[in-house]
Simulated assay, not measured.
Amino acid sequence: MPRLFLETERMANINSGLGQVCLHLGHELVRQRPPGWEITFLVPHDQVGVFGPSVQYITATRLSRVWHPWKFDVWHSLYQGTRYMPMRKSRFIYTILDLNYLSLTEIGADRKQRQKKRYQHAIDKAKVITTISEYVARDVSEQLVVPPDTPLKAIYCGVNTPDAVPSASPSVCPDGPFLFFIGMIQPYKNIHTMLPLLEAFPAYQLVVAGPNNRPYGREMRQEAERMGVSDRLLMPGPIDEATKWWLYANCDAFLFPSLMEGFGLPVVEAMRFGKPVFSSSLTSLPEVGGPDAFYFPSFEPETVIDTFRKGMDVYRQDPAMADRFRQYSQRFRWDTVAADYWTLYQDVALR
């Protein structure tokens, strides 16, 4: 009986992007499990049982980060910063979500070099490397050394949306039309460049959801005060799933000016609701956002305002655009992702 190990320890932060990837991919892998395969999940202690009684669980502990002598036929670590690589012989699949850490300006050169060595060590052990976009695959090839006999394969993320959206937001409810962003509130997300939209369009509020206890969040609030729009900048911090889906369903547009993304899951989530997406044109975002998203050619205030105004005019004048967004988003499905991984697991198990 082939034995598959899946590292889903990052579900400790279940509402994070990575936590949701682990959760939804894990459920779909269990649903599609071929006959004869045994699955073991590494999970935080409070998530034991989350994938049902038909699979096995190992609880992640501090000790297990340094000592994990488990042996499986196929071992899959779901993100590049893993602390869990096989210590005994297992066929190792290494997923790289992005190499953003190596480009962050606030990280020193020595720390970046140490992390780069860790990435390279994992690549050297891997039977197969997967990424979540073709952009990340190219970035890995450029920044790291992939052995010529190690496959490097892009498998996109999926998107999971609720069957029904809450009729009222449980924690954040703007009192008028609003624009929406969700993600980590960090400088590379570039969210401050959206504040001129509040000056140019005084009917709008801007909801910026995500952890905002870092200096960049405070700087954004200070900039909004300087511009006289702080009363229309809502920064509720982390939000639950029900609130997130309500905000997607009720916003006028979704803004995603990020400078670095391995995939950009919120872009597809917004499209699933038929919403116009205004995005950076950098890294993976054009690949994921597709032909109908609106892309900022620069982040000068005049350009941001002009791009948004013209894009909203196009969206309002094209009644079919919302349905095109919904249809396009369907190419990012967890059942497709899981099927691709099961094909890969079965292939790797035979090597």
Rank of each mutant, 00 (worst) to 15 (best):
S258D: 04
R221Q: 14
L344V: 04
H121F: 13
M85T: 15
N100T: 15
S329H: 07
F92Q: 05
R232Q: 07
K310S: 12
P174T: 09
T95E: 11
R83A: 14
F5Q: 12
L29F: 05
G19N: 01
F325C: 13
E199V: 12
P319H: 11
N15M: 10
T61Q: 05
A322Y: 06
F180E: 04
E223V: 08
F294R: 02
V314L: 14
K275S: 07
N100I: 15
F51M: 03
V172D: 01
T82A: 07
M184Q: 15
M321D: 06
V48Q: 10
A137L: 09
G264V: 02
Y94A: 01
K244N: 00
M321S: 09
L25Q: 07
I14R: 11
A164V: 15
L206A: 02
Q327S: 14
V172I: 06
R65D: 09
G36H: 05
Y101N: 07
S298T: 12
D347H: 07
V50A: 14
A253Y: 05
M11P: 02
G262S: 11
I58E: 10
L350S: 13
P236C: 03
V267Q: 05
N250S: 06
R33G: 09
H76Y: 10
K310R: 15
M194L: 13
Q115F: 10
R91C: 04
S298E: 05
P35A: 09
E219L: 09
Q120M: 08
A338Q: 02
V304T: 03
Q186G: 02
P291F: 08
R10D: 06
N190S: 02
Y101P: 05
F256P: 04
R326A: 09
G183T: 08
V288K: 03
K153A: 01
T150F: 10
V21P: 00
R326V: 14
L6V: 13
D313F: 08
S54F: 09
R309K: 15
L42H: 02
C22S: 14
L179Q: 10
I132W: 03
S279W: 02
R272Y: 05
D340V: 00
R214S: 12
S280G: 01
L255V: 10
P147F: 12
A164L: 14
P69Y: 12
F201S: 08
R221H: 09
L265V: 04
K153T: 13
L350C: 10
G290T: 08
I58C: 03
T105I: 00
P151C: 11
L197P: 01
E199W: 03
F278I: 00
A293K: 01
S329Q: 07
A168C: 03
R10Y: 13
L206R: 02
P202E: 12
D240G: 12
G228S: 05
R138G: 07
D306G: 00
V146K: 05
V348F: 04
A168L: 11
W245E: 04
Y57G: 08
L285S: 04
W70M: 11
P174Q: 10
P162G: 12
D163K: 11
P148F: 07
H45C: 00
A270W: 05
Q47V: 00
A270V: 04
M1Y: 08
P301H: 00
E142N: 13
G108I: 00
V136Y: 07
